[in-house]
Design a protein around this nucleic acid. Structure first.
Length: 942
RNA sequence: GCCCGAGUGGCGGAACUGGUAUACGCGCACGACUUAAAAUCGUGUCUCGUAAGGGAUGUGGGUUCGAUUCCCACCUCGGGCACCA
């Protein structure tokens, strides 16, 4: 037996695999297809990160398993190579971005191949290849022709250093995501893609895809759908000749009776229109100017301190109450969202509340909260008028609480209101009856509240409508309590701190807060009050009626904004549009695509903020395709999201120069069956590519409305100590070193073993030795193989089942652990059966393809192990003959007994009670109950 | 501030649907082999206790015969979002 020489073995098999092309996907296969996708890497100058290996290995394992299961697997790779780091490097060194990219992709390709990934290299793509971006430009033209790509003046985030406009999502803490420079606001003509036209479908169709729940949630939050209403408020002028109105958007039309003022965004067009009516125009103008100077980021960072100015001289009319209310402008209202105007309901919205407090505006309570406190599901509710009272001590700062004796309750004084009784009298009567205290002074009545709860002592579900009071005792006069009362509860004097800790009932806690002057808005739903004819209605159910009542209309609004699609940079796809002096914007004819990037000497953006392309007059000045007159090319380029929005389609037919991919190949291969990528891409990239896909679907260019059937995500690999790997910290691990020292198989196995796949894990220099030792043991076991030896079916069948299931659930760490356990088990034997060893090699092969391929060949096989079939486990062999279960006494494990799986409950009980330890603990005890969980444990309770 | 995720030995982590907490790996200790070391193999390794037995899954409560798992409140860490009406 030779020694395990990973260097030799790994090189050998990588060469053979590529030569034989065994991982090439077949376009014309009769087999069932499986399309596995990873996010194609950005080939940075630093070379590959160990994080790439983690996610690629995971999908490589799944690809290899699918092949063994008989699928025709497409597992492609390519380069997302446009982008700023390369361009910045070009600016610094004067080297051409295309040359830099070539060098970087060569490094990445070599590194990826050294790990033994089963990519179909024949389909490799590169977004910076003109043959590829021809089609990116072509798709853009389709957007343009449908009017979904348009130019608009935008206030954009401007990075003065990179001289580039940034999308909102590229600004981190007010600074440029890439260079960290403080971002400014600038007005600029920008290309836009109308993603908002697809907002509703992008939201709704999430129902039909299999994405991890957090990913769906992330997409939904980003799209930010909210259902509400648009309602018009009339504006009253001293001059009756000029009627006008303002439309507001609200998600809470049910609270409209509490709307005590309106707020417009400072940029709202109405503000300018009403200029002549506004008496404090100077003040308004100043405020608008101040707001404009603030970047959006600053407006957001200043958060808590809300500012605004009242528009004096005009008023609005609340359409529900018909009362006149003031109109304000404030920068906490954004012109980009909804209608740019809101109705403010300070009683039930926190921002409105803070604003109203600051400027002393009216607050009207219109919702009474309903607290739901674990009612029993199967019982109906009994409604009661009730009181709830806090009673303060006559001298000390303490309050009276009732500690219930039969149930675990701590409450204030509560009780029912008898028919015809005034609620205040009822409260005083209940206090006197329950506590004996006689002389009370009412200090305050709190807003009413309601509670749905299970009344333990009465065994019924209650829906109680509480009037809430706050009394103080005048003196300590107290009558003796009846026997009956004394049995129900005991009295306790408690401080607010103690009460806060022990009081568990929602409504009581709220009153406690009121008591301490911690005023809070209640922004939940409940029962309407001060709402005219809607008083007593459930706020949620009354929404529609109220919208009708005030003449509003139901409206869905999205937070998603259109996508700013142009960059004033060199290293991106040129936007294929020509500006003609006579014809205006003319698309580049399809036959002239691609519009190739010309070679440039200087990659520095122009000082005007235009892309470096603007300096190349030979390239810029062209004839108009329509009228042949004088024209100029568009010099903006696309963001690097463009090429990645459709790359998965190109893989199906990467060499096609007639169309972006043939219908036939798209039909066979799409949608992607399983797409795994980083959490950081689960909103933007995923949403953008879903948008492009839906657009292409509408043009009947792709066969499905969603690109990805299933999406999962992986966690990051951090440096030692749990911090991000970075050059500056010097904690970057170079995969080349690991491959050299331990081998690709060990690296793959370690990265799968190090922790749960969907969570971040820190790299450990020491722990990698474990998987290496494991592979050496696997290697050495070849000397113990015996052809005809009977094998331990139980162990191997169990491992096959567990490893297979774990791979499907991406629980790779426990799959590796199962493989290790199996090897530990059989290592104890004198000799091992070849049958079992072969099955084991098969299930190990997706994790460690090189060593298993070598051992497979040593066993005499000619065909690659990845072309063998995945072993099917035999369930009947996994049954235990005898198993150990726990015996608990009162929930604590006291003994273990052996049983047979066929034993019924009676036999198990008998065996349990025959146990010496059990006898010792149970003798003389009156056994109340015995719980038996089949094949697990038995619990004896006394 | 809001949303999401996580918190278990010295360390990475395991635990099905509420059913024997600490699998697997690293490290450490001891032993075998060796002139010696490394490598390898073997044994041990949550904690208190001689034992019987007790205590531990961020903290405090709750539900349950039984809670790492479910519920409530809080603390810490990581990620995302930024006044979204």
């Amino acid at each position: 037996m030779k020694e395990y020489d990973h260097k030799k073995i790994e090189k050998k098999w990588q060469t053979i695999w590529e030569k034989k092309g065994i991982y090439r996907a077949q376009n014309n296969s009769k087999k069932k297809k499986f399309y596995n996708l990873i996010e194609f890497p950005y080939p940075s100058g630093d070379g590959m990160h160990v994080g790439h290996i983690r996610s690629n290995t995971a999908m490589d394992i799944i690809s290899r398993k699918r092949r063994m299961e008989g699928f025709n697997v497409l597992y492609p790779i390519g380069w997302d190579a446009f982008g700023l780091p390369t361009e910045n490097y070009a600016i610094k060194t004067g080297k051409q971005p295309a040359v830099i990219t070539k060098k970087n992709t060569d490094t990445f390709r070599r590194q990826l191949q050294s790990i033994g990934f089963s990519f179909d290299w024949s389909r490799e793509i590169n977004t910076t290849d003109p043959k590829y971006y021809k089609w990116t430009q072509w798709i853009f033209l389709q957007f343009f022709k449908k009017g979904l790509a348009y130019k608009a003046k935008m206030t954009i985030n401007w990075c003065p250093k990179d001289k580039i406009g940034l999308a909102n999502e590229e600004v981190i803490d007010g600074c440029c995501e890439r260079c960290g420079t403080q971002v400014e606001q600038r007005e600029k003509e920008q290309w836009m893609l109308a993603i908002t036209k697809y907002a509703d479908r992008l939201y709704k169709d999430l129902d039909d895809v299999d994405y991890l729940p957090q990913i769906k949630l992330g997409q939904r939050n980003w799209i930010g759908k909210s259902e509400g209403a648009e309602i018009e408020f009339q504006i009253e002028f001293p001059d009756v000749q000029r009627p006008n109105s303002v439309k507001i958007f609200t998600t809470r039309p049910d609270t409209i009776f509490g709307a005590t003022y309106l707020v417009l965004a400072p940029e709202h067009e109405l503000v300018q229109k009403l200029k002549s009516q506004i008496t404090n125009w100077k003040e308004i103008e100043n405020y608008i100017r101040e707001t404009k100077n603030k970047t959006e980021i600053e407006r957001n960072v200043e958060d808590k301190i809300k500012t605004g100015v009242e528009l004096k001289g005009i008023k609005a009319v609340n359409p529900a109450t018909k009362k006149e209310i003031p109109i304000w402008i404030a920068d906490y209202v954004l012109v980009t969202y909804g209608t740019g105007a809101i109705m403010a309901v300070p009683a039930h919205d926190e921002r409105d509340f803070a604003f109203a407090k600051k400027y002393d505006l009216e607050i009207i309570n219109v919702i009474e909260p309903v607290y739901i406190d674990r009612p029993k599901e199967d019982l109906s509710f009994i409604e009661r008028e009730a009181i709830h009272a806090i009673v303060k001590h006559w001298k000390e700062d303490k309050y009276l609480a009732l500690k219930w004796k039969k149930v675990n309750w701590l409450t204030f004084i509560t009780g029912g209101v008898e028919s015809g009784e005034n609620t205040k009298d009822a409260a005083i009567r209940e206090i006197q009856e329950e506590t004996g205290y006689q002389n009370l002074k009412l200090i305050k009545e709190f807003p009413r509240s309601h509670s749905k709860f299970y009344h333990e002592p009465k065994k019924e579900n209650r829906f109680a409508h509480f009037s809430n009071f706050y009394f103080q005792l005048i003196n300590d006069e107290q009558k003796e309590l009846s026997q009956e009362e004394q049995e129900i509860h005991e009295l306790r004097w408690m401080t607010t701190q103690e009460l806060e800790k022990e009081m568990t009932i929602g409504g009581a806690l709220r009153d406690l807060e009121n008591l301490q002057g911690k005023e809070k808005t209640y922004s939940g739903t409940g029962i309407l009050t001060n709402s005219g004819k809607f008083d007593g209605f459930d706020s949620e159910k009354a929404k529609k009626e109220i919208i009708k009542f005030v003449g509003g209309k139901e409206k869905v609004t999205f937070k998603l904004r259109d996508w700013i699609f142009s960059r004033q940079r060199y290293w991106g796809e040129p936007i294929p549009v020509i500006h003609c002096e006579d014809c205006g914007m003319v698309p580049v004819p399809e036959k002239d695509l691609p519009v190739e990037l010309p070679k440039v000497k200087n990659y520095q953006p122009t000082d005007s903020g235009e892309s470096p392309l603007a300096n190349i007059s030979k390239w810029v000045n062209v004839k108009c395709p329509k009228c042949k007159g004088k024209a100029k090319r568009e010099t903006d380029t696309m963001p690097n999201w463009a090429g990645s929005s459709w790359y998965y389609l190109r893989y199906t037919d990467s060499k096609n120069n007639k169309e972006f991919a043939s219908k036939k190949n798209l039909k066979y291969w799409t949608p992607v069956d399983w797409y795994n990528g980083g959490n950081e891409h689960t909103t933007l990239h995923l949403l953008y590519s879903r948008f492009w896909h839906k657009f292409l679907f509408d043009l009947k260019l792709v066969p499905t409305s969603e690109p990805y059937k299933k999406r999962t995500s992986h966690g990051m690999i951090l440096g030692g100590g749990g911090v991000k790997m970075s050059k500056s910290l010097g904690n970057v691990i170079n995969p080349d070193d690991i491959v050299k020292t331990y081998g690709a198989d060990t690296l793959r196995l370690y990265e799968m073993f190090m922790g749960p796949f969907n969570q971040s894990v820190a790299w450990s220099e020491e722990a990698i030795i474990g998987p290496r030792r494991f592979l050496e043991r696997v290697w050495n076991l070849q000397s113990k193989i015996q052809k005809n030896k009977k094998y331990n079916e139980f162990e191997i069948e169990k491992a096959i089942k567990k490893v297979g299931e774990d791979i499907e659930e991406m629980k790779f760490n426990t799959a590796v652990s199962t493989l290790m356990i199996f090897i530990n088990e059989i290592s104890k034997l004198e000799s091992i059966s070849q049958m079992a060893y072969e099955k084991f090699l098969k299930i190990l092969s997706p994790f460690a393809p090189h060593i298993t391929e070598e051992l497979w060949q040593i066993l005499g096989y000619k065909k690659s192990i990845n072309q063998e079939s995945w072993p099917v486990f035999d369930l009947s062999k996994i049954q235990d003959f005898e198993l150990k279960i726990a015996v608990q006494i009162n929930g604590k494990v006291k003994a273990e007994i052996m049983i047979s799986p066929e034993d019924d409950e009676e036999i198990v009980k008998k065996k349990a009670f025959a146990n010496e330890a059990v006898l010792r603990h149970t003798s003389g005890k009156d056994i109340k109950k015995v719980f038996y969980v089949k094949n697990r444990l038995i619990n004896i309770v006394f």
